[in-house]
Design a protein around this nucleic acid. Sequence first.
DNA 1: ATTGAACAGTTGACAGTGTCTACGTATTCG
DNA 2: CGAATACGTAGACACTGTCAACTGTTCAAT
Lengths: 203, 203
Amino acid sequence: MSVPVSTRDRLVDTARAYLDEEGIDGIGLREIARRAGLSHGAPLRHFPTLGRLLAAVAAEGFRDLYASVEASMSAVDSADPMARLDAASFGYVRFAANSPGVFGLMFRSDLCDTGDPEYAIEGGAAFGQLVELVVDAQAIGFHPDLVPTELAGVLWSTMHGLASLHLHGALAPTTGQTDLDTLVRIANRLAFGASSTISKEPT
Amino acid sequence: MSVPVSTRDRLVDTARAYLDEEGIDGIGLREIARRAGLSHGAPLRHFPTLGRLLAAVAAEGFRDLYASVEASMSAVDSADPMARLDAASFGYVRFAANSPGVFGLMFRSDLCDTGDPEYAIEGGAAFGQLVELVVDAQAIGFHPDLVPTELAGVLWSTMHGLASLHLHGALAPTTGQTDLDTLVRIANRLAFGASSTISKEPT
DNA sequence: ATTGAACAGTTGACAGTGTCTACGTATTCG
DNA sequence: CGAATACGTAGACACTGTCAACTGTTCAAT
């Protein structure tokens, strides 16, 4: 937000920009330093290791994911839990589709240092957002007998699998030219018979 | 299967053994060569690149995945498509849980050279196995209006997401001590109201 | 005002990587 | 029998993450 960001923040932004432009493949400490106009050892003055730098990027990714889901839900009736759950699904996969680099990074425990507290906190917050939605849905009769976190885990898995396989390219060739939104609609119809009013293009 | 395997096969086996023992993290050309008792350049006589070697390992992984699903299905009534679909789900996630290294590798396009024909063929075969199951299910009234490959893609995504997030460790802390089978049961109940006779430990 | 410690950045080294090339050997085939 | 081809080795190259030493700057305390 602010203009004269610290070097630390600029490193995170640079890494994120790299992910958006080039994908996750060639990312590295020296490459980030190069793009930030610093010497190859400079990042280590702000992060003890590459893994921690990437964990910071991933944590920011979780915040953006949270925001993407929130934005998607703001388009539907806030008093309708099922509509919100449906909208949240689109927010999730759209974040993944729009930011494949960071999304891919967020679940790469070999790259991110998952011991980073910020990483754990932001990841937990994103999941917490979903659990709240699930609790609201259960309150109006959606599988009220299930453990909320377990039900949330299953719904999360579906969207996560859809996003992951789509980015992997596994879905496109096998299911033809099917776009991701269609698959999300099908998934939600299976899970809770959603009619999916969402089909236009926010966030 | 045969005893005096070729060096090429031994390299694949060595790589696979490494994945099973050490996970995906430290794998590399030189490490594989070391474990196989060869010089660091030897693998390149059989594979043009590390990516191709790993693609061969992944292709074998797809064959094993196929077999795991087949084995799981052999325990239920072969004339009941929904029971077979239910069983197939367990075969999928159990393969992932039992072989986290290869499973992780199979969907890492930055490591596997996805241009390898064998990789594409075996991956396609595994998906084809699922599509057949879906077609059978649709024939007895399970969402017969949907495109088979799309429905299959969604069902696949759910199990893939479950397996991926479980291996990532994202499911364990958030959903407490819930084991993977429980989540699969919940997922299948959402998708097709399965009663899941499967709960014991095959494959 | 001066000292001294903390900070931030550079630079060079180290061990490790994937890949390439040149070299040797051995087997096989014309 | 000679030659070609396959296989394995060894060295080099460019690259990586990380560490240690060095330089300059800032800033608080004496």
